[in-house]
Design a protein around this nucleic acid. Structure first.
Lengths: 218, 218, 218, 218
DNA sequence: AATGAATGAGACTTCATTCAT
DNA sequence: TATGAATGAAGTCTCATTCAT
C-alpha cells in the first residue's frame, strides 16, 4: 500500500467517464474480491472473467492494489462522510425528540445503504480485517465521522434526560454500534437469515433492545 | 482446504508430545498468521523465524494449510465445546437465578479466555472472514454449540419471566452475542481501549445495557 | 534490427520538413536514449515527455528500433562520410606539410563536432557497445571511411619522412585514434574534466604526445 | 541497483563452495551478458541454457541484478586492487629504472589478465557504458586504484628526468591509459586483429609510441 | 527427524505495437 | 495526422512443495 487512502479519496475526482472495459474490470474485481478476498484473487482471473486482456487492467489501474483502492475509495466516500453529514443532519434533526425514532431512522437508513452495497461491504470488511494499512487509515476516519456523530446524538439525548447518564457516552455508542453492526454482519455472511419480509419488525426489536434491554417489560 | 475441519478436530487426538521444532513452528506461524494473515505469510518466512529448515515444516505438516489447521483446530477444540458444555454447566447452573449474574459470569469467563488466546483469536477471525471453507465449516459448529447454549439459557430465563418474551429468543441471543463480541473485537483490533483497570466496571455496564438498555432509569 | 543501416543511410533522403511533433519525438528520444540507453527507455516514456500520444510515435516511425535509427543515421551520415571526404580534403590538403598541424586540425575539427553532438555521441556509443547489429554494420563503414583516411594521411607523411616507417601505418593509426577517442570519451562520460578554457592547450599536448611521446625533450 | 558495489565487494566473502548449479548459472549468465548485454538477456533464457529451473536462479541470487553483481564483483575484486597493489609492487619496483620496461611490463601483465577474462571484461564494459549506477560506483574506485598508481609511477619517472615535465602527469596518465585501453578494446570487440603470434612485437611498438611518439627517429 | 537445494506453476507487471475513432 | 484504449507476449520474481542426502 503505497498510496494514502485520504489522498486517494480527495484526488480521485478527476475521473472522466470510465470506459466500458474499465467499468467491467471494477465490477468483476469487486465480485471476486468479495468472494475470495484480495490476496486470493489473481489479476489473470479478473481479466478472464471480465473478458479483457490482463494488460488492460494495468493500463487502467497500474497495480493490483490500485484496483482495490479504486473499488474501496468511492465506496468509502459514499459510506462514511455522508453518514456523518448528510444522513445525520436529516436523521438527527428530524427525530430529535425521541431516541427510539432516531435509532430507528439511523438503522433503517444504513440498512438500505448496506443492502445496496452488500458486495462492496464484503470487500471492505475483508480487507479491514486482513490488511493492516487499510485498517490504520480507515479506522481513524471512521471514528471521526460515524462514531463521533452517533456519540454526539447520544450526548444530546443524555442532556435531555432521555438516555442514561450513568454509563459513559462512549460505551453507549460502541454498544449501539455493536448491535447495529452485528445485525448487518449477520445479513452479510449468512444469507437469508430472516425473510426480507419482517425487516421492519426486526429493526423495531433492535431499537427496543437498545433502549430497554431484554428484561421483562413491566 | 482439502481436509474437513470436523474430521481434523476428531482425528487430531493422537498427538504425542510435539517435538521442540514442531512446537516452535506452530508458535511462530501463529504469530505471523495473526499479524499478516495466512495468505500473506510464506512458509520460508516461518522457517526463518522458527530457525528450522523449510523442509521441516512440510515433514511435520505436509501442507501449509495443514499448518493453519494445526493452529486453529486445537484452539477451536478448546474454545467452542467447553464454552458449550463445561463452562455452561458451571456458569448457567451456578447463576441460574438472575440473568444479570449469568451474563456477568459468561462475559467474565469468555473475556479471560479471550485475553489468554488473543493471538489465536486473531488468526481465527482473520481466516473466518477470509476463508470460505473455514467459514462454512466452523459457523455451523459454532451455532450448534455456543449460540444454541446461550439461547437455551435465555429461553430458561424467559420461562422464569426474567427476560421478555415479546422478542424471539433467537434475536435476543444474537443481540447479546453482538454486544459481547463487539466488546471483544474492540479489544482485539484496537489496543488499549480502556485501561485494564476498569474491566470489571465495563462488564457491569454491558450487562446493564443488555438487560435494561440505555434509556434513563426511573 | 531488421533494417540495414547502409540502406537506411541512403534511402533516408526523402525526408520533407519533419512535423513539429515528429521533431519533438526525435529530440526527446535522443535525450532519453543518451541518458538511460535504448533498452531502458520505453516508448510510453518518450510519448509522455514529448507530449504526444504513444500512437503518434508509431505513426511516424513504425517501430521503436526505427526511431533509434532515425536518430543515429543522420548523425552518422554527418559524422562519418564528411569526416572522410569533406573534412579530409580540407584538413589534409591544407596542412599537408606538417603532421603536427594535421593532427591539430583533425582533433580540433572533430572536437568541435563532438561537443555539438555530445548527446548523439552518447546514444551512438551506448548502442555501439550494446547492440551487435549496429556494431557489425557501423564498424566496417567506420573503417572504410574514418580510419582509412587517417591511415592514408599517415602513409603520406611516412612517404615524406615525417613519420616513422618502423611501425606499420595501421598500428600508428589505431594509436592516434585511441588517443583522440580516449580524449573525447573522457569528456563524454565524466563531466568537466578540464575547464573548457584550456582545451587549446590540451590539444597541443595531445599532438605533442602523438608525435614525440612522453620522453624528456632534449 | 539497490546494493552498493563497495559493500558487495566486502560482504561477498562469506561465500561457501558454490553449488554445481549455481556455478553453471554464473557461467552461462556471463556468456549471455557478454554477448547481448544485461538488459537484453532474460532470466528464462539463462535458465534454459544452464539447464536449471528459472526459480533456481532466484533462489541463489534473489534478483537478476544481483546475478550481474555476482559476476562483476569478484571480477573487479581481482582486477582492480591487485592491479594497484600487488602488480604494481612487482612491476614498478622491478622495472624502476626505465619507463620503457615499466610500460612494457605493465601492458604485458594486464594483457595476460585481459585475455584470461575476456568475457568478464565484455560484461563489465557493456554495463559501464550502459548502467549509470555501476559507472558512478566503479569509476571512482578505478581512479583511486589503477589510474593513481600509474600516475605515481609516471611522477616518479618525471622526478628522475626520464619523462617530460612539460605536460601534467594527469594528461600523461590518461594518454598512456588510452593507448593501452584502446589496444585492449581492439582485441575485445574485433576478433583476431592480429595473429596472436606478434603480440610481443605489438607491445614493443606501443611502448615505443608512448615514449617516443610517431615522428621519424633521428 | 532434519535439511536446504531444486522445482515449476503462477503471480504481478511492462511494453512495443495495433486499430477504431 | 493524431489519438489512446486495448492487446498479449514476455519479463522478473514468489512460493508451496519435493527429494536426495
Amino acid at each position: 500500500m503505497t498510496e494514502n487512502l485520504m489522498e486517494a479519496m480527495v484526488s480521485e475526482t478527476k475521473q472522466k467517464k470510465p470506459t466500458d472495459k474499465k467499468q467491467r474490470i471494477v465490477t468483476v474485481a469487486a465480485e471476486l474480491f468479495a468472494e475470495k478476498g484480495y490476496a486470493n484473487t489473481s489479476t489473470s482471473e479478473i481479466a478472464k472473467k471480465a473478458e479483457v486482456a490482463e494488460g488492460t487492467i494495468f493500463r487502467h489501474f497500474q497495480t493490483k492494489e490500485n484496483l482495490l483502492l479504486s473499488i474501496l475509495v468511492p465506496f468509502l466516500k459514499e459510506a462514511l462522510p455522508p453518514m456523518a453529514e448528510d444522513v445525520f443532519s436529516k436523521v438527527l434533526n428530524r427525530y430529535t425528540d425521541s431516541p427510539e425514532s432516531f435509532f430507528h431512522a439511523l438503522i433503517t437508513n444504513r440498512y438500505a445503504f448496506f443492502i445496496e452495497n452488500k458486495e462492496y461491504f464484503q470487500v471492505f470488511i475483508k480487507e479491514l480485517v486482513y490488511n493492516e494499512q487499510i485498517r490504520n487509515e480507515v479506522i481513524p476516519i471512521f471514528q471521526r465521522t460515524v462514531l463521533m456523530q452517533i456519540e454526539t446524538a447520544i450526548q444530546t439525548f443524555q442532556e435531555k434526560g432521555k438516555i442514561t447518564k450513568t454509563i459513559p457516552s462512549e460505551t453507549l455508542t460502541r454498544t449501539a454500534f455493536s448491535i447495529m453492526f452485528g445485525f448487518f454482519l449477520t445479513h452479510l455472511f449468512f444469507q437469508n437469515v430472516d425473510g426480507e419480509s419482517n425487516i421492519e419488525e426486526k429493526i423495531n426489536q433492535l431499537v427496543h433492545l437498545i433502549m430497554n434491554g431484554m428484561k421483562t417489560s413491566v
